[in-house]
């Protein structure tokens, strides 16, 4: 049962950030295509935003480690 909890902890915690990162990346690419001269700025901000979203998954991974039997 605890194994299931570990799998669910990391599995569910990937859903939200996955969707969020997809939306953020698609919007950023849209912006880059419309305004190629701003591509550098947009890319840096996008990587920063993706890193913050990724932290949520990493917290899920931490919880998975902590409750691992």
């Amino acid at each position: 049962m605890e194994h299931l909890a570990v799998a669910l902890a990391i599995g569910i915690s990937t859903i939200g950030p996955g969707l969020g990162q997809g939306i953020a990346a698609s919007k950023a690419f849209e912006g880059m295509a419309r305004q190629p001269e701003a591509a550098g700025n947009i890319r840096t901000s996008m990587i920063l935003a993706l890193a913050f979203m990724e932290a949520l998954t990493i917290y899920g991974l931490l919880i998975a480690f902590m409750i691992m039997p």
Binding site: E54, T57, I58, L62
Partner: peptide
């Protein structure tokens, strides 16, 4: 915490 866990989690994974 998030800075260390992000790097660790990504590379370890």
């Amino acid at each position: 915490l998030s800075l260390s866990l992000r790097l660790y989690g990504n590379i370890f994974g």
